[in-house]
Design a protein around this nucleic acid. Structure first.
Length: 241
DNA sequence: GCGACAG
DNA sequence: ATCTTGTCGC
C-alpha cells in the first residue's frame, strides 16, 4: 500500500513532546472527514485491522511489533499480512495513544501490497477529548475510511445495552455541557461485555457499527482486531521475550 | 491539587 | 499494553 499522507504531516515532524502532540491533534481533527456516511457493508471488499504488541521488560524493553491484516469482507478470510518491528518513540499517555502506535502501524500498512477499502483500529476515533483518537488520526494520515472499536469505556459514560447481539447504547462525553454522543456501546455477543465503537475518518457511526457486527459473527471483538492482535503478538514472541 | 484514563 | 493457572464451555 502506497504512502499518501494528507495534511502535510511528515515523519520528520512527528511530535516529541506532549504539547506538540496536542497541537498536532487540533490539526488532525480539522483535517478529518467527520460527516460522510462512508462505505456500508457490501460496498467494501477488503478490510484491514491494525494492532500493536509490546515487549514486557528486560533487554527487549521498548520493543514493539505492529501488524496489519487484510480480510476479505465477505468470507473474513485473511488476504494479506504485514508486520513492522520497532522501538517505542513516545510514552503511553491517555489521549495521546496515536503518537505511540501510529508510526509502526503506518510502516506495517506500507508493507502491504493490497490497499484496503477500510481500516479498523483497536481503540477510539472521535471518542476522544479533542475528537482526534487513533482512528481519526490514522484515517487522516492514510486517506482511508477508518473507525475504532475499543474494549473499555475510557473516560466516557453509557447505560448498559440490551442483552442481544446488535443491541446498543449511546456512548457519551460527560465533560461537554450538553453531554455529547461520541460513539456507541455495542453488544456483539449475548452475555458478553459490549465493545465501544466510534467513527474515525470518512465513515459514520451507523456504518461503523454495521461493519463491526459483520466482523464479529462469533466473538466479542471483530476478526480484524483478533487477527492483527494475534499476529503482532506471535511475531513479538518469535523475536524473543 | 489529586485521581481517572483507549493501548 | 503486560504480568499470570487452572478451569468452565462451545
Amino acid at each position: 500500500m502506497a504512502a499518501e499522507a494528507a495534511g502535510g504531516t511528515a515523519a520528520g515532524e512527528w511530535p516529541a513532546t506532549e504539547a506538540e502532540a496536542v497541537a498536532e491533534q487540533e490539526r488532525i481533527r480539522a483535517a478529518a472527514d467527520l460527516t460522510s456516511a462512508g462505505p456500508a457493508p457490501g460496498a467494501v471488499r477488503r478490510i484491514a485491522g491494525v494492532d500493536v504488541s509490546y515487549a514486557s521488560s528486560g533487554t527487549a524493553d521498548g520493543l514493539l511489533v505492529a501488524a496489519a491484516v487484510v480480510l476479505d469482507a465477505d468470507t473474513l478470510d485473511v488476504v494479506e499480512e504485514a508486520v513492522h518491528a520497532d522501538r517505542a518513540r513516545f510514552p503511553y499517555v491517555p489521549g495521546l495513544l496515536a503518537f505511540r502506535e501510529l508510526p509502526p502501524v503506518l510502516a506495517a500498512l506500507e508493507g502491504l501490497r493490497t490497499t484496503p477499502d477500510l481500516v479498523v483500529c483497536d481503540g477510539y476515533g472521535v471518542a476522544h477529548p479533542r475528537r482526534a483518537g487513533l482512528a481519526v488520526h490514522l484515517g487522516v494520515l492514510t486517506g482511508l475510511p477508518c473507525f475504532g472499536v475499543a474494549k473499555t469505556p475510557f473516560a466516557f459514560t453509557h447505560t448498559e445495552p440490551g442483552p442481544r447481539r446488535g443491541d446498543t447504547a449511546p456512548l457519551l462525553d460527560p465533560r461537554r455541557d450538553p453531554p455529547e454522543v461520541v460513539g456507541r456501546a455495542l453488544r456483539t455477543r449475548p452475555g458478553v461485555r459490549a465493545v465501544f465503537v466510534s467513527a474515525g475518518h470518512g465513515i459514520g457511526l451507523d456504518n461503523a457499527c454495521a461493519h463491526t457486527l459483520r466482523l464479529a459473527p462469533r466473538h466479542r471483538l471483530p476478526e480484524t482486531t483478533r487477527r492483527a492482535d494475534g499476529l503482532s503478538r506471535r511475531v513479538l514472541r518469535e523475536l524473543g521475550e
